[in-house]
């Protein structure tokens, strides 16, 4: 798995995902200044975040022991730093939880020290 590299470049082309318009945005970056052409105000805010600190809600599954299903789906409690998602996936591969698990419960805290928790998204009963 390889996430898109986000090196400090002078020019960037991004697609805005704030609304369904999907505007193409040209971004110029020099020192700390970020200039955005194309799109709207909301788009500009999106781009600045996307360049300085891109984050994504991560959804995946964990192994679950003695459950009616072998996997329990989970999500991060808030968006997680995008560039650390591969490391997060590796960490989550090492986890195994025990059934039952209830939707909404926090299953792991402060993932990789990023202050984001992991939440169960489907109740998995214990296998009889």
């Amino acid at each position: 798995m390889k996430l898109k590299e986000q090196k400090s470049r002078e020019f960037l082309e991004l697609i805005c995902i704030v609304c369904p318009l999907g505007c193409s945005l040209s971004v110029t970056k020099s020192d700390d200044r970020i200039r955005v052409r194309g799109g709207c105000k909301k788009g500009e805010k999106y781009v600045k975040e996307e360049i300085t600190n891109p984050r994504r809600v991560v959804t995946t599954t964990l192994r679950i022991k003695n459950g009616v299903w072998p996997r329990v789906p989970v999500r991060t409690s808030s968006p997680f730093p995008r560039d650390k998602i591969p490391e997060l996936m590796k960490f989550l591969s090492s986890l195994e939880v025990e059934a039952p698990q209830k939707r909404g419960e926090v299953i792991a805290k402060n993932l990789l020290g990023e202050g984001v928790d992991l939440v169960v998204t489907r109740t998995i009963e214990r296998k009889e």
Partner: peptide
């Protein structure tokens, strides 16, 4: 099986 991600950044 899923959950066999052994290395993080450079699987390929």
């Amino acid at each position: 099986e899923t959950k066999e991600v052994r290395s993080g950044a450079s699987l390929y």
